[in-house]
Amino acid sequence: MSIARVVVARVASRAVTPTLRTERLLLEPYAPGDEEDFVALFQDTEVSRWMGDGPATEAEDRALFGRVFTQVYARDLFAVWAVRRDGLLVGHAEIKRTEAVDGHEIIYALAPSAWGRGLGTELAQAVVAHGFGALGLTEVHATVAAENEASLTLLHRIGFQHTRDIEEEDGSTTRVLTRHR
């Protein structure tokens, strides 16, 4: 599915995180009132098992939400979005520089209630388009657990190619995928 349009509107206090619109999704900076929905998304083990180091405690997820404001937005570090559909928070997305790939990595997650509708593809395409357009990147990366077949399939479908594997300390494998402009 193609993106109907991507609208970049800078928010004065959050210059790094613009608002993006796709056919069905709104990606915008988090608001303080999003904390409960953010925590619920990150506490859902079907979602969090694929993010970072896996599930965290509720207190850790609340602290993470706080750091979005006190560090990421306050210091304009990188783009972090609340992903909404029909006004409801249904996901999370980021694009940021990371040492793991020596470049910019996209991160995205959707609530299970939003799975199976093509929204993940729409979301990932919007974040990639932002990287190539507004950020002027020539390549964008994604790191995905080798067992996360759904995300690997989605990324391959939108033009990402497997470039290498990272063997993690716990014995698991993380796939590095790259898409060139």
Rank of each mutant, 00 (worst) to 15 (best):
V6K: 02
V8N: 12
V8D: 11
V11E: 14
S13H: 14
R14C: 03
T17E: 04
L20K: 08
R21W: 02
T22H: 10
E23K: 09
E23V: 15
Y30F: 15
A31G: 14
P32G: 07
G33E: 08
D34W: 09
E36C: 10
F38Q: 13
V39G: 05
V39D: 12
A40G: 07
L41E: 04
L41I: 15
F42G: 11
Q43V: 10
T45Q: 10
E46G: 06
E46I: 08
V47N: 05
S48H: 05
M51Y: 12
G54T: 15
P55I: 10
T57G: 09
E58Y: 13
E58S: 02
A63Q: 13
L64G: 05
L64Q: 12
F65T: 06
F65G: 07
G66P: 08
G66L: 13
V68T: 06
V68Y: 05
F69T: 13
T70P: 04
T70C: 01
Q71E: 15
Q71F: 01
Q71V: 11
A79G: 01
A79P: 01
V80N: 01
A82D: 04
R84K: 15
R84T: 07
R85G: 00
D86Q: 05
D86M: 11
G87Q: 09
G87E: 06
L88D: 14
L89E: 03
H92S: 01
H92D: 01
K96S: 03
R97G: 05
A100R: 11
A100F: 05
A100N: 12
G103A: 10
G103N: 05
I106N: 01
I107Y: 14
A109G: 10
P112H: 01
P112L: 03
S113D: 14
W115P: 03
W115Q: 08
G116S: 10
G116K: 13
G118C: 08
L119N: 04
L119Y: 09
G120Y: 00
L123T: 00
L123C: 06
L123R: 00
A124H: 06
A124Y: 00
Q125C: 03
Q125Y: 04
A126R: 03
V127W: 01
V128K: 06
H130A: 03
G131K: 03
G133T: 13
A134C: 15
A134G: 12
L135W: 02
L137K: 12
L137M: 15
L137Q: 05
L137F: 12
E139Y: 07
V140R: 02
H141T: 02
H141L: 08
V144R: 10
A146F: 11
E147Y: 05
E149Q: 09
A150T: 12
L152C: 10
I158W: 02
G159V: 06
F160N: 00
F160S: 01
Q161L: 13
Q161P: 07
H162K: 06
T163K: 11
T163D: 05
I166W: 15
I166D: 09
E167A: 08
E168Q: 06
E168T: 14
E168I: 11
E169N: 13
E169V: 13
E169M: 12
S172K: 15
T174V: 07
R175V: 05
R175N: 01
L177T: 07
